[in-house]
Amino acid sequence: MLSDENGKTKLRPGKRNCKHIAKHLKAFQELDPSMTLDDIIDLGIEIAGDIRNYFKTKGDNTAFRKTVNIGGETVRVRAVLNRNRRLRTVFVEKE
């Protein structure tokens, strides 16, 4: 896990990434209606900040995934970082 706030700040998504991530917010809100865009970005940063969650690399983009509990349901969440280690996406994986 990243141990300092500066490390996590580096993973924060840019404006384009946020527009994309917002598309996936609805799936999180179906599990927990109180979740916000900031919440899922924080979740994505937490997942991508832990090398133990590494899943795969495609091009320059690195995917991480972790099984988490959201609103009482166990789901697998994927987070992807771009080559600049900014959060490119975060979403609930389908079964």
């Binding site: 840019g14 404006k15 384009r16 990434n17 527009k19 994309h20 320059d60 771009n82 080559r83 600049n84 900014r86 490119r88």
Partner: peptide, 13 residues
């Protein structure tokens, strides 16, 4: 292409 801030080759959304 989302060109609001110019084309972005890293994240071409």
């Amino acid at each position: 292409l989302d060109n609001e801030d110019g084309p972005d080759p890293v994240d071409p959304t």
